[in-house]
């Protein structure tokens, strides 16, 4: 797959804290991810991975501390959002609309040029061209994940956030995902991905472990032990 992305975007968390009522999802976490990096996030359920990703996507505001997007110093929050793509736990698409209608709708919200041509190209890239006219609600889990990735890619974002992207994908789907992630990274995009999948995680150049909302470990991937016990 060929992705032609403009300059990428990094993200810096400065003593970030997030509370949901009495629950502290993130505890004074400081972390900097440079533009163009490919980072894998690990940690047990409830360790704060999803909150961190949604905070990077500007969907969640920190209770205290600051989130800064590196390379976006002179941009408005709206322009920063334009450069961010998110693949979340849920597909973020409308079941009642077809794959093509979903992507066309989001292309319209992003005011993209040549929207229809771009929608067709992205649908082809994620292998959904043959189901473009079918309602997203009729898709299998794996196909929904492909559509979710297509939705995130439609605006050619510079910072891509993946929350368990391999969930629901079969072996062929995982291979496709690995190729996609590699292609995006080679095109210069910043990738931050939470995952429990060793094969997908091995593509990342840096591994970060979270536990109970705190940064537990931050290593270059080559130095990271791959034992599942450590990761989970």
């Amino acid at each position: 797959m060929n992705f032609a992305l403009p300059t990428s975007l990094g993200v810096e968390f400065d003593r970030v804290e997030k509370r949901y009522g009495g629950l502290r999802a993130l505890r004074r976490l400081s972390l900097s991810i440079a533009p163009g990096e490919f980072v894998a996030l690990f940690g047990p359920n409830g360790s704060g991975k999803t909150t961190l990703l949604r905070m990077a996507a500007l969907l969640v505001q920190p209770t205290s501390g600051k989130v800064r997007h590196i390379g976006a110093e002179n941009l408005s929050p709206v322009d920063v959002r334009r450069r961010i793509g998110l693949v979340a736990h849920k597909a973020l698409v409308y079941d009642e609309l077809s794959a093509r209608e979903n992507l066309s709708f989001f292309a319209k919200l992003y005011a993209l040029d040549n929207a229809e041509e771009r929608v067709g190209r992205v649908l082809g890239a994620v292998g959904l061209a043959h189901r473009a006219g079918d309602a997203a609600g009729t898709f299998s889990r794996g196909m929904r994940q492909r559509l979710a990735i297509a939705r995130a890619l439609i605006s050619e974002p510079r910072l891509l956030l993946f929350d368990e992207p391999a969930t629901g994908l079969d072996r062929q789907g995982r291979e496709w995902l690995e190729q996609t992630l590699t292609g995006l990274h080679e095109a210069g995009a910043t990738l931050i991905m939470s995952t429990h999948d060793d094969s997908v995680a091995s593509l990342a150049g840096r591994s970060i472990w979270l536990r109970a909302g705190r940064l537990e470990r931050d290593t270059a991937a080559a130095d990271a032990p791959l034992e599942r016990g450590v990761r989970q």
Partner: peptide
């Protein structure tokens, strides 16, 4: 809320 599409709308660069 079904597919968290509100998050996708909030993520879009619109008012």
């Amino acid at each position: 809320q079904v597919n968290d599409t509100l998050a996708a709308l909030r993520l879009a660069p619109i008012d």
